[in-house]
């Protein structure tokens, strides 16, 4: 079974086994026998062997964090990013306010207005990261893939003001090329197209 298959196989009980628990000794004699058995059986020594071998093998798993970092899963829910359209550089956010509505810790706020073309634009967008629980609902609900969870997880700050305004999260125009189209949290599933019923068009 590959890793994914194993993950999708929810019938895990086949791998379960029952731990044998011997009945608790009742008479002093039984107790004594148990002690002898447990002491003379090399349980304790096996423990010592395992730890010693581990030490000698020197198979170290430590990641020295600030120097080394683990790659983050695409579905990791880090600091939010507001994305732009790759072609035009326009903000993707249309100011629908669904993220504001769905946010269960009530930390998203959005100000909108019509722009000179009569489109709705968000003038300001803020997430109070002091309150955000990174549940990912906002990214999940966003119809435009405008807000996504980034990979950044180092978000300690000394200033409350740094939790966080639109310009902090929005892809800067000069970094548009570095913006990654998001396969992770909140993105449509690969089979999404198939699930949609097509609307007839008269063109």
């Amino acid at each position: 079974m590959s890793g994914l298959e194993q993950f999708q196989d929810r019938n895990v009980s086949q791998n379960y086994y029952r731990v044998k628990i011997e009945p608790y000794p009742k008479t002093p004699w039984e107790k004594f026998k148990r002690v002898v058995r447990k002491s003379l059986k090399p349980d304790l020594l096996i423990g010592l062997k395992i730890t010693l071998l581990e030490m000698l093998r020197f198979n170290i798993h430590t990641i020295q964090y600030p120097k080394e970092k683990l790659p983050v899963s695409p579905r990791f829910r880090g600091i939010h990013r507001l994305l732009r359209l790759l072609e035009s550089g326009n903000e993707r956010c249309i100011g629908c306010g669904l993220c504001e509505k769905i946010c269960i810790s009530n930390c998203i706020r959005i100000d909108t207005k019509p722009d000179e073309n009569g489109r709705k634009i968000p003038t300001e967008y803020t997430i109070n990261f002091g309150r955000c629980i990174f549940c990912g609902y906002c990214a999940e609900v966003c119809p435009e893939l405008a807000i996504v969870h980034g990979q950044e997880y180092e978000y300690a700050s000394e200033q409350r003001a740094q939790f966080a305004m639109k310009e902090d999260m929005l892809t800067p125009l000069d970094k548009l090329k570095e913006q990654k189209e998001y396969p992770g949290f909140g993105a449509p599933t690969p089979a999404a197209d198939k699930l949609i019923k097509k609307t007839p068009l008269a063109y």
Binding site: G95, G97, T112, K113, P114, K120
Partner: peptide, 9 residues
């Protein structure tokens, strides 16, 4: 009022 807020807010 146009485009200033959502009615449910």
């Amino acid at each position: 009022y146009h485009y200033t807020t959502n009615s449910w807010e």
